[in-house]
Structure formats: C-alpha cells, structure tokens
Write a protein that binds this DNA or RNA. Structure first.
Lengths: 116, 116
DNA sequence: CGTGATGTTCGATAAGTAGCGAACATCTGT
DNA sequence: ACAGATGTTCGCTACTTATCGAACATCACG
C-alpha cells in the first residue's frame, strides 16, 4: 500500500544533511546493501522495495528504508502500490563528495579475496 | 595510567578495516570531533587523550578512543603515563580514499552558517 | 616514598536499534 | 467486490551503546 496518497514523505533538505546521520545510516550492512544496489543503477533510476532480496523480514526492511530516507540517503516516492527508491546522488555528492562512490565501490567486507 | 606496558593495544590490520565499522565509528559527534582534531594536525602527529576538551567524562572519553582504535580509525601508543593518539591516515586513505578528508572537512553540523 | 596527573576498568542505568510477527492499508487486477 | 501484491505500523524482545561515578593502575616528580 505504500501510504496515504497525500501527506508526502519526509525528506531532509540538502542543507540539513549531516555527516553523522549519513554515516550512521551507512553503517548497517543491510542498509549499505540497499545503497550499493541503488548505486549500481543508472543515475536517477529507481527500484521498488520488493526487488531487493534482503535477508530480513518485510517490517525490518521497511524500517531500514525509512532510516535511509530520513538520513537523506535515498528518495522515496509512491507509485501505485509500490514505493520507489532512488539514491540522492546529487545532494550527497554536493554535501559529501566521494562518500557515495566509496560506499558503492566498497560495499562491506574486509579486503582479501578482492578477486577481479 | 595508560596501561600495562606489555600486551600491546589491539589494532586491526589495514586489510581488516570495513566500511561499516569505520562509518559507525565516525557517526558519533564526540568521536567525529576527535577525528577532526587529529585530522588538522600535521600527518603523523599525535596528541594525548587529555588534550581534547570533550564534554563527557574521562571514562566515556576512554570508551570513545577505544572504539575509534578498534574500528581502525586511530592508532594509540603509550608513552609514559600518557596515551598518544594519531590518525591512521595511510591505512584509511588506502582503503577508503577521501573518507577521512570528508570527515575532517565537514565535521558535523548541517550546512548553513558556512561563512566564507 | 607519597602525590598528582593521566587513563582504564567495572558496574549500573538509560536510551537507542535491529529484529520479528500480526494486523492493517492501499492499489491493481479479475 | 474480492483477492493478491506491496508496504507500513504496532507491540514486543534482545542487544548494543552512551553515559556516569568510583575504584584502580601506572608513571613522573618533588
């Protein structure tokens, strides 16, 4: 159901983004996986929540998407019954240039079997 | 007292650093302040814990320094009665190029009175 | 040797966070 | 109108985290 069609979703403005909030959002493996997935899409592309094959239940996923949105990492938009997610590339690159690239490139996991 | 002169302090190897652990370490305002302070020193320079004018008690500071060390953000070395802290610039720049610069440049706080 | 300075550790508390399942809401089809 | 798909919300539990004060350890110094 996504949500009541009115009362828009809360997104912090670009100016309101903070390093600590964004860092905290990226410090969870599940959320980082979401960001990595979105980051490998063409700029501006979006995906509904259901297309992320995450290892946690729906309610937990919902919480993670909300955390990312409230930290200003992703943008969410309701389209019919689905909630579409996209990276706030422009805003993040403006406020924290390079951070997103790092997150996407590294994903998680220590450097070891970094096989080509 | 810093610590028993033997049994060295635990520092993760460069290869063992993870994005989530480092992000988590940087996501606390007190810890970020420590990193910012160290980051404004000349490369390689170190400071004892006591020289950071932090708004929390000594025991809390101790915990924060340990968190940063265990995440691989800082290096700690005992010198007499003081514990010297320095940034692991080389390792961080290798694993997460640009991340440290961002943290240091931004500190925390939303963009607003970013005068000059 | 005692004292002071510098830090750590321990135990406790309070607050936050991730996780789950069940129930609910909304839209799309049929 | 009903059924299915997609998500959210709520209540609960378990774990982690930030914080503090008190006690302790180590070193340096008079």
């Amino acid at each position: 159901m996504a949500s009541r069609q009115s009362h828009e979703l809360a997104h912090p403005s670009r100016a309101a983004l903070t390093f600590t909030a964004v860092s905290a959002a990226l410090s969870d493996p599940t959320r980082l996986a979401i960001v990595v997935r979105l980051g490998r899409l063409a700029p501006g592309d979006e995906l509904p929540c259901a297309t992320f094959a995450l290892s946690v239940t729906k309610s937990t996923q919902s919480a993670h998407f909300r955390t990312l949105r409230e930290a200003g990492v992703i943008r969410q938009r309701d389209e019919g019954t689905r909630r579409m997610n996209s990276l706030r590339r422009d805003d993040l690159d403006d406020r924290f240039p390079g951070l997103l690239n790092l997150a996407i490139a590294q994903g998680d996991a220590p450097r070891s079997g970094r096989r080509r």
